[in-house]
Amino acid sequence: GATAVSEWTEYKTADGKTYYYNNRTLESTWEKPQELK
């Protein structure tokens, strides 16, 4: 079936920290989303 993983994109900030952005909800988070675990 369809999965929600594709909504999240992993980015890195200029200082090398990783964060996650959800293209559907426009939410961003420092925590790894449940969908990616």
Results as ranks from 00 to 15, higher is better:
G1N: 14
G1L: 14
G1E: 12
G1Q: 14
G1M: 14
G1K: 07
G1D: 13
G1V: 13
A2E: 13
A2R: 09
A2V: 13
T3P: 12
T3L: 13
T3Q: 13
A4I: 14
A4K: 09
A4V: 14
V5S: 13
V5W: 14
V5E: 12
S6A: 11
S6M: 10
S6W: 10
S6N: 11
E7I: 06
E7S: 05
E7H: 07
E7R: 03
W8V: 01
W8E: 00
W8N: 00
W8K: 00
W8R: 00
T9K: 10
T9F: 09
T9I: 14
T9P: 00
E10L: 05
E10K: 04
K12F: 08
K12V: 12
K12T: 11
K12A: 05
K12G: 03
T13I: 03
T13H: 04
T13S: 07
T13L: 05
T13Q: 04
A14R: 09
A14Y: 04
A14P: 12
A14N: 08
A14I: 11
A14E: 11
A14T: 10
A14M: 08
A14S: 11
D15P: 01
D15Y: 06
D15I: 03
D15L: 04
D15E: 09
D15H: 04
G16S: 02
G16H: 02
G16P: 00
G16V: 00
G16D: 03
G16T: 00
G16I: 00
K17S: 06
K17P: 01
K17F: 08
K17Q: 10
K17M: 07
K17W: 05
T18I: 12
T18D: 03
T18E: 03
T18Q: 03
T18W: 04
Y20H: 01
Y20K: 01
Y20V: 00
Y20G: 00
Y20S: 00
Y21E: 03
Y21C: 09
N22T: 00
N22V: 00
N22L: 01
N22K: 01
N22H: 02
N23R: 11
N23W: 15
N23Q: 10
N23A: 10
R24E: 06
R24V: 15
R24D: 04
R24A: 08
R24L: 13
T25P: 01
T25M: 01
T25E: 02
T25L: 03
T25W: 02
T25G: 01
L26A: 12
E27F: 04
E27W: 03
E27D: 04
E27H: 04
S28M: 15
S28Y: 15
S28N: 05
S28V: 15
S28T: 15
S28F: 15
S28A: 12
S28H: 13
S28W: 15
T29F: 07
T29L: 06
T29C: 07
T29K: 07
E31F: 08
E31R: 05
E31K: 05
K32L: 09
K32T: 08
K32M: 12
K32I: 10
K32W: 04
K32E: 07
P33D: 02
P33S: 01
P33K: 02
Q34K: 09
Q34G: 10
Q34E: 15
Q34D: 15
Q34H: 11
E35H: 06
E35R: 03
L36Y: 12
L36T: 06
L36D: 07
L36H: 09
L36F: 12
L36E: 06
K37C: 15
K37R: 13
K37H: 13
K37L: 15
